[in-house]
Design a protein around this nucleic acid. Structure first.
Length: 734
DNA sequence: GGTTGGAAACTTTTT
DNA sequence: GTTTCCAACC
């Protein structure tokens, strides 16, 4: 018996079809990764050199998983198969050849924060009023252009009449020239520049075409135009391109993913073989019915119907709660009960939500219940201030042209170098066409600097010392030296607050990451480390061996599976998000949200619980949302309603809706009036001592009875006299 | 040049 | 409710 006998006929067909273009339409849980791995094994068995095989994924986690599974299945030789993400593949190519495009091979990679700083500078230069045109808007316009492989001039051709478009174009141009000056690339550039390289240098292209004779792309539905072009260029010589995807799981349109790449694959490659994988090995029949019932409402998809031989399973559970507080409480309690009864481990549970902001309540409740959890997303580890500061030092040591990094830390810790000094240096640098750091080296020659030049010297001396240290020190030692010599660690230690403590812990974690890198890399270099760090996503840090409940957004959950899944906050306005409801093309946007819902549902293997709250605080405002339209699309026979709102009548639903609508329309000063329930009497009276949650203790001066509520005047010991509504103030008699 | 407090914006999703 | 930004002050 061979390893291929465990595959079903369609999977087997996909594995054996090695030559020419191949499109695998793989439904959720249909074993697509399995197919890819077996395909790699089969290729090698057929005598294909492992280093001629390229497998591309989107996240490092997916790449790492595939790497492990290939190693297990194939063993010897598998290490030569190139398994990596789009971005790291491009970085590897660019590190070798980007000098052909006039960049230095030790370029920096800019993250979202860095991009914003550059754009700020650009707006200042071009006198763009950022109150009217936000940096974020400009950056996303530029990013969208890059996703489509469009340069500034292409934008100009498209809408030369439009003033705003014109300004975007100018900003785009200036932004690119700033990046070039700093010898830096942003995330999108990694792909764009690689395509550019291939188009300008046929010899380089041919080298990689010969290198990658067999190409496989995972999550193909998420590729954007630039990534498609990249793949197309690489594959055009041997045409052995195998793409795997599911149009129903395309959820990254906002990031430029072009769903046409998968829908039109057969037009671009007319001789493409198409194989559908529709048997699901993950979920119960019932969960699949739910998923099918929801996704059915989308138009313009490739029709497919998931089926399974798995058992029917329990009906999914829908519950509505009064507020988000109770929602979180119930779920945490539910998990705790299951685990205590020995039904499952914590790691079998995932709580999925639409936005990162929703995680907080669950975290609080989980901490309170003493349940270990892992939070994915939110503020990326590498986006934290202290981490970025230290990395900036390393970047300066590594790439002397990274002005942004210099600006970031020239005065961190404080060296008494302020904006005025920095501007003078910048002017000098611009005048002589040199980088900021090089100008700092010549501080003595810069006019108007005066005594400030003496403050600059310690900084440049520090960097120079570090550079020479790099010759004979390990990266860990270098990093330690930076921490000591700059006084960065000392400063935090002296601060000695809870916050600085946390920062120090983060720094320690960074140090251990440096050490780990040095131990694992073949030839560890500073550039190599910075690069690895620039390209990690949060999801990459999800270890499978820790027994934790997992909290993450629906987006992050793609590609994962859990026995028990909670999809929370299922309310119109949250999910689907109000952004999609208010969009110019709501139908299209809601279809994307629906696909996201489909992704969420199909993450669960055994049981799925869907919850909603009647009222919810958003940005300090109470909102009343309808139950999500997606919940209503679920076939009734698959679902059991429980909870006090089990039999919510049409009339009640209507009432909620009207309330919500009124809330939307209400003027800022009267929105909450209908939420007020006037107490029949108050537990305190005039002259009593009371406690307020924020203002502390005080004496009640006066209670006035209004139509809807009592108005109370209190003289607080520390905050003075305040006037407040009794129902909001929640005053307690002492 | 640095610190502080209050206002304003903010949250859809990420390599 | 939280973070970021900016102006006014030290």
């Amino acid at each position: 018996m061979s390893i291929y006998d465990t595959l079903n006929p369609e999977q087997k067909e996909a594995v054996l079809h090695t030559e020419g273009p191949l499109l695998i339409l793989a439904g959720a849980g249909s074993g697509k990764t399995r197919v890819l791995i077996h395909r790699i094994a089969y290729l090698m068995e057929q005598g294909v050199n492992p280093w001629n095989i390229l497998a591309i994924t989107f996240t490092n986690k997916a790449a790492g998983e595939m790497r492990d599974r290939v190693d297990k299945l194939v063993g010897f030789g598998s290490e030569s198969v190139w398994v990596s993400t789009f971005h790291s593949t491009c970085v590897r190519i660019l590190r070798r050849y980007i000098d052909r495009l006039g960049f230095d091979n030790s370029f920096s990679i800019y993250d979202t924060d860095d991009q914003k700083s550059v754009m700020k500078e650009v707006c200042k230069l071009l006198q763009i009023d950022t109150k009217i045109m936000k940096e974020r808007y400009l950056l996303s316009a530029i990013s969208r252009a890059k996703d489509e492989l469009k340069g500034p001039l292409d934008l100009q051709l498209e809408a030369s009449e439009n003033y705003y478009q014109e300004r975007v174009m100018e900003a785009y141009m200036e932004y690119q020239s700033q990046l070039r000056k700093n010898n830096a690339l942003d995330f999108d550039d990694l792909i764009v520049k690689t395509v550019e390289l291939f188009q300008n240098c046929p010899d380089v292209l041919e080298y990689y075409q010969d290198r990658f004779r067999y190409i496989m792309v995972d999550e193909y539905q998420d590729t954007n135009t630039a990534q498609f072009k990249l793949i197309q260029l690489l594959a055009s010589k041997y045409r052995n391109l195998c793409v795997v995807g599911d149009d129903d799981q395309s959820i990254y349109k906002f990031r430029g993913a072009n769903i046409k790449n998968i829908l039109n694959f057969e037009e671009v490659f007319p001789d493409a073989k198409v194989i559908r994988l529709e048997q699901n090995y993950r979920s119960t029949q019932n969960i699949l019915n739910v998923a099918n019932g929801v996704i059915r409402n989308n138009m313009g998809r490739k029709e497919k119907r998931l089926w399974t031989e798995n058992e029917e399973g329990k009906p999914i559970v829908f519950r509505q709660f009064l507020n988000a507080f109770e929602e979180a409480e119930y779920i945490v309690e539910d998990i705790r009960r299951h685990v205590r009864e020995g039904e499952a481990d914590y790691q079998d549970y995932a709580i999925l939500y639409r936005t990162n902001a929703q995680s907080r309540l669950f975290e609080e409740k989980l901490i309170f219940a003493n349940i270990p959890y892992k939070l994915i997303g939110g503020v990326n580890f590498y986006a934290r201030k202290e981490i970025k500061d230290l990395l900036a030092y390393l970047k300066i040591i590594d790439n002397g042209r990274d002005d942004l990094a210099v600006r970031r830390v020239i005065n961190v810790p404080k060296r008494g170098i302020g904006a005025t000094t920095l501007n003078r240096v910048q002017d000098y640098a611009t005048a002589y066409g040199i980088g900021l750091y090089d100008a700092l080296l010549r501080a003595d020659e810069i006019p108007g600097l005066g005594r400030s030049s003496s403050k600059i010297r310690p900084f440049t001396v520090l960097i120079q010392t570090m550079r020479s240290k790099m010759e004979y020190c390990s990266l860990t030692e270098l990093m330690e030296a930076v921490l000591e010599e700059t006084g960065y660690r000392k400063e935090l230690e002296l601060e000695d607050t809870e916050e600085s403590q946390g920062r120090l812990e983060n720094i320690d974690e960074l140090l251990s990451k440096v050490t780990a890198y040095e131990e694992s890399a073949e030839t560890p270099t500073l550039s190599g480390f910075l690069e690895e760090v620039a390209l990690v996503a949060d999801i990459d840090n999800l270890e499978s061996d820790s027994n934790c409940v997992v909290l993450m957004t629906l987006h992050s959950a793609k590609g994962l599976e859990f026995p028990y899944v909670y999809m929370v906050g299922m309310e119109d306005g949250i999910f689907p998000s109000y952004m999609s409801l208010d969009a110019e093309n709501p139908e299209e946007e809601i279809e994307e949200e629906r696909r996201l819902c489909y992704v969420g549902i199909t993450r669960s293997k055994k049981e799925l619980t869907i919850t909603a709250a009647q009222q919810r605080m958003i940005r300090g405002q109470t909102m009343y949302n309808n139950i999500s339209r997606f919940v209503r699309e679920i076939p009734q026979e698959c679902m059991s309603h429980v909870g006090k709102k089990e039999k919510q009548t049409e009339r009640q639903k209507q009432a909620t809706y009207i309330q919500a609508r009124n809330n939307f329309r209400a003027k800022p000063f009267e929105p909450k009036q209908f939420t007020v329930k006037k107490a029949s009497s108050l537990e305190y009276s005039e002259g009593d001592r009371v406690r307020h949650i924020k203002f502390g203790e005080g004496t009640v001066l006066e209670i006035t009875e209004g139509g809807k509520d009592y108005e109370v005047r209190v003289d607080f010991d520390s905050a003075g006299v305040k006037r407040m509504f009794a129902s909001f103030a929640k005053l307690r008699k002492i």
